[in-house]
């Protein structure tokens, strides 16, 4: 008996829409064109999110106050990848930190360059390396580098 059979089909993924995409993420992407990181602040508890959701995750109220956050921050946790998503070994291990930017309460992932894997650590200070040509895409935050 055959181990696997292939069945043809289609899946329309263009219908996946997030309401959040239209508010906080749009604000963030527009700011990135100018090299700024614009999040959303909760007017009640002061929590700052990047990208900003349309409601405060702690107070459960609608929020819509643009707040600029720093492009410098601190590594909260990280991993080091040794293979790509298809399992092929990478030439150089890839460091992926989760960073808490100054003035922001949420964490944001990225790729860290300019550091050897053995030197990366939680608490390390890093800054965003912006793409030379910014287009209002998440790729504008090219990677993190040590501060």
């Amino acid at each position: 008996m055959e181990e696997t059979r292939v069945v043809q089909g289609t899946w329309d993924i263009s219908t996946f829409k997030f309401r959040i995409e239209g508010v906080g993420l749009r604000r963030m992407l527009d700011g990135m064109k100018e090299g700024k990181l614009v999040g959303t602040r909760c007017h009640k508890c002061g929590t700052v999110y990047l990208p900003g959701p349309f409601y405060c995750r702690k107070c459960h109220i609608e929020i819509n106050e643009p707040t600029e956050v720093s492009d410098h921050g601190e590594i909260m946790t990280y991993t080091i990848g040794y293979a790509d998503v298809r399992g092929n070994p990478l030439d150089e291990p890839r460091i992926a930190p989760v960073v808490k930017l100054d003035g922001c309460d949420s964490w944001i992932m990225g790729v860290l360059q300019g550091v050897k894997p053995e030197d990366v650590h939680v608490g390390m200070r890093v800054k965003v390396q912006w793409a030379e040509e910014r287009t209002g895409s998440l790729q504008d935050m090219a990677y993190y580098v040590p501060e």
């Binding site: 293979a83 992932m109 990225g110 790729v111 998440l138 990677y143």
Partner: peptide, 16 residues
């Protein structure tokens, strides 16, 4: 939003 889901750059640091 333009993320590279293969994890090569930007914020697409998605593991498997």
């Amino acid at each position: 939003a333009g993320i590279d889901v293969t994890g090569g750059s930007g914020m697409g640091a998605i593991g498997g």
